[in-house]
Amino acid sequence: MDPQDAVFRALADPTRREVLDLLFEQDGRTVGEVCEGFADRMSRFGVMKHLAVLEEADLVVAVRDGRSKRLHLNPVPIEQVANRWISKYAARFTSALEALRQHVEDAPGEGTA
């Protein structure tokens, strides 16, 4: 599987995006702390499945800390997706907006004497 495919697959699920948001707020949470954030709606096993998908996409890195694992957000794959996909398509629109701005600024104003 292409690494970017894994990132898109991971980001497609709202629960996984919520896990990433938790790690953005406080990086280095333990697996137990992340599971606590979903205790009202999901089992620990369910959260672990989501974490496995995030780790497979390299969006989360687990580091052993004694008997527990600390989870760290890895923003690099998201940046790579943004550079590859979002920036490429946004450039065309920003160029068009810049041309429009230039046209409006260069056009003679209406109603001015």
Rank of each mutant, 00 (worst) to 15 (best):
M1K: 04
M1W: 03
D2N: 08
D2T: 05
A6S: 10
L11M: 10
A12C: 03
D13V: 05
D13Y: 09
P14S: 10
R16L: 00
R16E: 06
E18K: 05
E18V: 02
V19A: 00
V19E: 00
V19Y: 00
L20T: 05
L20I: 04
D21W: 12
L22S: 05
L23V: 01
E25M: 04
Q26V: 01
Q26G: 01
T30Y: 07
E36F: 06
E36K: 03
G37H: 05
G37E: 09
F38V: 02
F38E: 00
S43G: 04
S43M: 00
R44E: 12
F45V: 11
F45E: 12
G46N: 03
G46L: 01
V47F: 03
K49N: 14
K49C: 09
L51H: 03
A52I: 09
V53Y: 07
V53G: 03
L54W: 10
L54C: 03
D58Y: 14
V61Q: 15
V63E: 15
R64C: 12
R64M: 15
G66M: 07
G66E: 02
G66K: 08
K69W: 14
K69L: 13
L71A: 02
N74W: 04
N74I: 03
N74K: 04
N74G: 01
P75G: 02
I78N: 06
Q80D: 14
V81T: 01
V81I: 06
A82D: 11
A82Y: 12
N83I: 11
R84T: 11
R84K: 11
W85N: 02
K88C: 08
K88A: 14
K88V: 15
Y89L: 13
A90K: 15
A90N: 12
A90I: 11
F93K: 10
T94D: 11
T94W: 14
T94C: 11
S95G: 14
S95L: 13
A96R: 04
A96L: 09
L97F: 15
L97K: 02
L97I: 04
E98Y: 14
A99S: 12
A99K: 13
R101Q: 14
Q102D: 15
Q102K: 13
H103Y: 14
V104G: 01
E105T: 08
D106G: 13
D106K: 14
E110I: 07
E110L: 10
T112Y: 09
T112F: 11
